[in-house]
Amino acid sequence: MMLVMVGMLPACASTPLVQGLELSSYEGMKPSDGLITKSRINVRKEQVLAASTVKLLPTAFAPLLGPKLSSEQRALIANAVNRALCISVSDRLRVVAPDQPADLIVKANVTHVTETDEVAAGVSAAVSLGMNFVDVGAPIPTPRIPIGLGNLSMEAEALDPRGRQQASMIWGRGANALFNSPRASKSSDAYDLAAEFGGDFGQMLVKGESPFDSVGIDLPSWQKINSAIGLPPKYAACEQYGRAPGIRGLIGSQLGLPPEWTDDGAKPHRY
């Protein structure tokens, strides 16, 4: 099985690493790549680990990105970033409301998106669903058609209350034919990858180091598991991003439904 997985790794979208213009500094950033992720990071470990509270500013899209995604799709992708960030940093940091003081202030930006080919994704979803009805006595893993896969590039930073940058990351990943479920929406791969970025940047703030330097497998915390299935998040501040689609999202993904159909998006919360 491992040989199959390794063999499928080339069947993925190109991995862009696009630097934007919104970070306060791009100095000192060094390459730190994962298996299927490219990144450049800079993190001041001692200062980051000294922080105990964090607040998240809204994720934004670079102004020059093309209008191929609808405003609803952009909002869903941006919200997926913040939701994943909020859940990820909650493993160590207390998340406070945007109008409250915090030791770290985080802002992320989408710098590049390649949309998913809806037709190819729809065909892949139909083939995968059809294989579930083939009686061969065992489940059949069905990789999606490696055509029209989407990709995403992000950048983010964490500032202290005096505006000094304590951590920064430029991140890029392409959808993979084995790991990313096909869904009939231009936004589907970017939506999935947005959550991956949020998890990676959040982990960097939790550990004070690159999320790709870990040896072995990090098991998810109980609060992450609860949030993933749609239960209340650890901190009330995360409620503003809505809850994960949970089982509904999993079923929708298996059926190839657009994330716009299964994710209710942000739920503004009054503090």
Rank of each mutant, 00 (worst) to 15 (best):
A158V: 02
I140Y: 00
V127I: 14
A175D: 10
G150F: 02
I140D: 00
I145A: 01
A125M: 13
L149N: 07
V123W: 14
G148D: 01
N132F: 02
S153Y: 04
N151H: 10
S188V: 07
S168K: 07
G130R: 08
R183C: 09
I140L: 14
G137A: 05
M154H: 05
R144K: 15
P182K: 00
G137W: 02
S187P: 07
G148A: 05
L152G: 04
A184V: 08
A138Q: 13
R164K: 14
G148V: 06
M154C: 12
P139N: 10
G174T: 05
S124D: 02
P146C: 00
A177V: 08
Q165V: 12
S185Y: 10
G137C: 07
G163M: 11
F179Q: 12
G150P: 07
A125T: 09
S124E: 04
Y191D: 07
L178K: 06
L129D: 12
G148M: 03
K186P: 00
L129E: 14
R144M: 08
I140T: 12
A138L: 15
V123Y: 14
S187C: 13
A175V: 03
M154L: 14
P141A: 08
F133E: 12
A184K: 05
G150H: 06
A156E: 03
F179M: 15
S128P: 02
V134M: 12
P146H: 09
M169R: 03
S188E: 03
L152D: 01
P161N: 09
S128Q: 14
F179V: 15
V127S: 06
S188D: 07
P143T: 09
Y191V: 01
Q166M: 15
N132H: 12
F179I: 14
L149M: 13
L178V: 06
Q165E: 13
V136K: 09
A126I: 04
N176L: 07
Y191M: 03
F133T: 09
R162D: 14
L159R: 02
S181A: 14
I147C: 09
A158G: 06
I170Y: 01
P143A: 03
D192T: 12
P146R: 06
L129W: 11
A156V: 00
R144Q: 15
Q166L: 15
L149Q: 12
D189A: 10
S185P: 00
I140H: 00
D192P: 03
D192M: 11
N176W: 01
P161Y: 10
P182Q: 02
I145C: 02
W171S: 05
L152H: 04
F133Q: 13
A184P: 00
S124T: 08
P139K: 13
S124M: 09
V123R: 15
N151T: 09
L129N: 13
S181Y: 10
A138T: 14
E157P: 04
E157M: 06
G174Y: 12
M131H: 11
G163D: 04
S181M: 11
V136F: 08
E157T: 03
A175T: 03
S168R: 11
V127A: 09
N151E: 03
P143K: 14
A126E: 14
